[in-house]
Design a protein around this nucleic acid. Sequence first.
DNA 1: TATCCTTCTTAACTTAAGTCAATGCTCCAT
DNA 2: ATGGAGCATTGACTTAAGTTAAGAAGGATA
Lengths: 191, 191
Amino acid sequence: MKEILMKYLAKYTTLTEAEQQAIINDLIIEGFKKGTYLIKQGDSPTKKCFFVLKGCVRQYYLDDDGKEVTSNFYTEEQAILLFNYEEPDQSSNYSLTCQEDCALVVADVESELKMYKQYTELESMTRSMMENYLAQAQNEYAKFIRSSPEARYKMIVQNRPDLLKRVPQHQLASYLGMTPESLSRIKKRIQ
Amino acid sequence: MKEILMKYLAKYTTLTEAEQQAIINDLIIEGFKKGTYLIKQGDSPTKKCFFVLKGCVRQYYLDDDGKEVTSNFYTEEQAILLFNYEEPDQSSNYSLTCQEDCALVVADVESELKMYKQYTELESMTRSMMENYLAQAQNEYAKFIRSSPEARYKMIVQNRPDLLKRVPQHQLASYLGMTPESLSRIKKRIQ
DNA sequence: TATCCTTCTTAACTTAAGTCAATGCTCCAT
DNA sequence: ATGGAGCATTGACTTAAGTTAAGAAGGATA
């Protein structure tokens, strides 16, 4: 499991193998059963973040009508970064729930900051990763906005085909910004 | 003009005033006339990024049909971060053009990295800002996806009313993921 | 096995957005 | 001032997605 993390450190830093090991040994890997909530909407602001080693985590919120709106699915090798601790007065805007049995790296912000102090390269790596995430998010956003629900479905088929099998369709529909009925019809339409 | 930058440094770092001054004196502030292109789609990958002190910069790309799709408007105190240098083989996906006369901080990646080496706190600040940007982007995305064109228009009226006056409507429409005709009708519908 | 609950599909209807086309408006340049 | 280009509005029509409601399929549980 920890090889995945080693891969990251090796790729983005020039830390020695010993240092890499030291860092990884400090990390906490936890297992979570399907259905577990990592955070619930309304909880006091999280100081935690996660990295998915195995499984699938769904992020959602309840809209004004009380309906679940799925805003993300996190799967293998994706980081779950909810930065609502930046507005410390606000409670969590989202819920995080395990769609499957999961293995996650669990980190809290304080120890993260400590680590940055100890290994400045680690912070460089994080900065660089954040830039990548942001770039990706911007690109996806730009494409998505301009797409019809049908085009969005085709995109997900292209980019994250695994989700189609791992995730209930009505949740996928809401993630794609459409109704379950629409998704059903689109699937039929394009066979 | 430089006070804005000082504000950032003071807010997010504990650098001494002298250090802050030194950093800011290293920055290049350039003026650009309305209509100037900062980058053109297809250019070789940029090593530059910008920070808007004054004016409005539009980011757009040409879709498969050759139509302009506006993916962002950057105004005062917003950073323009195009991280396509992460995929060094690819050319720029976007064009950046000045909608108005602009004053921008122009930075290039190499000198940025050098500065990080010199002032590690500066990299901390950047990491933290990136996390904020990302969080913001994710939140906006989640809201947007689930909204109708009409709801999106209302959101922009709420959040960035200045854009309504600064920007041609057909560009705004494409930024909101709708046709100019739709935007015109929506405006009429809700007076 | 029978029952219940959730999910998915299908249908009929409504509506808002896309498309195409024509008309006006504004600003700019000559 | 005039003409032209680009932009905004409006209308008629088409279409895809939302809404509501009903039924079918699949899984879990007793």
